[in-house]
């Protein structure tokens, strides 16, 4: 038997020396399935948090807003002066006046459609595209204060940085969850291995009688447990991927989980979950079986 999957098949007797097990085997498969399901969700959450953090750190960091508050008689003059300052400032890529209709559209979700916007003391709004690497915000604010005292420059730092930090924490939480899920699987497999050693005492005695080394016996147990855990993890991963696919995507508005899906090549990553589960199960099963066999001799 050649190839890396050879050990899974092994020789047919080596694979079968450990009996398939009944209820405990089903339990391990179920445990691996549930943990794999949550691992896929944690993975999707981690990746989504990374995407959000990158977006907030990137595109959102390259836009700013200038609001001009002033009396009716001077507001247009101040807006023009502010525009002049902006256009002459290095690091300002473009400026655009946001007209009243657009402002109404922005405010409607907050104030409702019935409020007469004309009666509200709305500022003049200028959207500014910037190059944060070049722009000297302090110098710009000083110039604006002189040319247009009613202008307030907002580069969104106040809300953007906490969001980036929150997204980073969510990402770390997702990674920590993956580690905890792997540990939980390892613990479950170790318990199953110890139980398997205990209930298969007769088979172990026979194997030792015919000269089996502990590595061979542990391999037999590990193979069984890996196949059970791996099968459960495949089913759990598939279920998790279906759920992630059904989650509302970023383009669907009005849902706070929007964007927790996977995109493009990221759909390949959940396929690693059963592989990782099998690896964890293999290590935990071998270690626990060897420990059990040592206690036994």
């Amino acid at each position: 038997m050649s190839g890396r999957l050879g050990w899974l098949r092994g020789d047919p007797i080596a694979l079968r020396v450990v009996p398939p097990g009944g209820w405990s085997a089903a339990t391990l498969g179920l445990l691996a399935g549930v943990l794999a399901f949550f691992a896929v969700l944690a993975l999707a959450l981690t990746l989504a948090a990374g995407r959000l953090a990158a977006a907030w750190e990137g595109e959102a960091g390259e836009t700013a807003t200038l609001q001009v508050f002033a009396g009716e008689e001077v507001i247009e003059a101040q807006a023009r002066a502010a525009l002049d300052v902006l256009r002459q400032t290095p690091g300002v890529r473009s400026v655009r006046m946001v007209d009243l209709a657009e402002q109404e559209k922005l405010l409607e979700p907050w104030l409702g459609p019935e409020v007469p916007m004309e009666s509200l003391p709305l500022p003049l709004l200028i959207e500014v595209a910037t190059d944060p690497e070049v722009l000297d915000v302090a110098a710009l604010e000083a110039q604006l204060a002189e040319a247009a005292p009613g202008a307030v420059y907002d580069d969104h730092t106040a809300w953007r940085l906490p969001l980036v930090e929150t997204a980073g924490r969510v990402g770390r939480f997702g990674l920590a969850s993956l580690v905890l899920l792997a540990l939980a699987l390892g613990a479950g497999v170790a318990l199953a291995a110890e139980r398997a050693v205990a209930v298969n005492a007769a088979a172990i005695r026979t194997l030792r009688l015919v000269g089996a080394e502990d590595g061979f016996i542990a391999g037999g147990f590990a193979r069984r447990l890996v196949l059970r855990a791996g099968a459960g993890a495949v089913v759990g991963t598939a279920a998790g991927m279906v759920l992630v696919a059904l989650l509302p995507q970023g383009s669907e508005p009005g849902f706070f989980l929007a964007g927790i899906g996977l995109t493009g090549w990221q759909w390949l990553l959940p396929l690693l979950v059963p592989v990782a589960a099998a690896g964890v199960a293999w290590g935990a099963a071998r270690a626990a079986t060897r420990r059990g066999l040592r206690r036994w001799s």
Binding site: D11, P12, I13, T206, V210, F216
Partner: peptide, 15 residues
């Protein structure tokens, strides 16, 4: 399979 067990244990493919 019981008779062939020592072969498996010794790394000899029973077949």
């Amino acid at each position: 399979e019981n008779v062939a067990l020592p072969l498996s244990v010794s790394g000899i493919a029973p077949e």
